[in-house]
């Protein structure tokens, strides 16, 4: 790492090697398993936030009586603070590398669907709905199933990982086509 000829200090480089990052996530999961006896995961705690945010719309009784929200009530517990940590890490990392900037439309989206902010926001919202609904039905997302499940050789984790990739490839074919030229 330090033998690199890059003049930028490691902590300020905008990108690290994906292999180094993957290995570090692996080591992080050793530490988390051994020290706090929890796997890495995200959407279990997001459900608690969803329930808290749904309360004004559905009514406190409806949320309190929902079997699923009851299992995943909002609390400032380990999982919730882990999410706070992810946000903190994202901000610190972006500030340190000087890559913090407001992005409304990403380049790949703009190239295919144009510069409408409204269209991108609608898609992001709908995509967010699908991601969370799917993650809850599968009982875990890319972190909880894809990484934590797969690294324990869980049948569910590998089923999730492989199905997710198959679905994503088909979806991107439908949305973006096969075109090799960037002008398609």
């Amino acid at each position: 790492m330090s033998s690199s000829a890059s003049p930028q200090p490691f902590l300020r480089r905008p990108r690290w090697s994906p292999y180094l990052v993957g290995a570090s996530i692996g080591v992080l999961s050793w530490v988390v398993f051994a020290l706090v006896d929890k796997p890495l995961g995200v959407t279990t705690s997001l459900t608690g936030i969803a329930g808290a945010c749904a309360t004004p719309f559905l009514g406190a009784d409806a949320v309190a009586n929902n079997a699923y929200f009851k299992q995943h009530a909002f609390k400032w517990d380990y999982g919730m603070l882990f999410l706070v940590g992810i946000a903190l890490g994202g901000t610190i990392s972006a500030l340190l590398s000087g890559s913090f900037r407001a992005e409304k439309i990403p380049a790949v989206w703009q190239e295919r669907f144009g510069g409408s902010v409204a269209l991108r926001f609608v898609a992001a919202f709908v995509g967010g709905v699908l991601v969370m609904f799917g993650a809850r039905m599968a009982d875990g997302c890319t972190s909880g199933n894809g990484i934590s499940g797969s690294l324990q050789l869980a049948v569910g984790g590998w089923t999730f990982f492989l199905t997710l990739f198959a679905s994503g490839i088909v979806t991107s074919l439908v949305l973006f086509g096969l075109g090799r030229s960037t002008k398609n």
Partner: peptide
């Protein structure tokens, strides 16, 4: 769930984490 998740991940461009 993973099938729905995969559609959402391409449309949204992110997974939850």
């Amino acid at each position: 769930g993973a099938g729905i998740f995969g559609i959402g991940m391409v449309v949204y461009g992110y997974c939850p984490g």
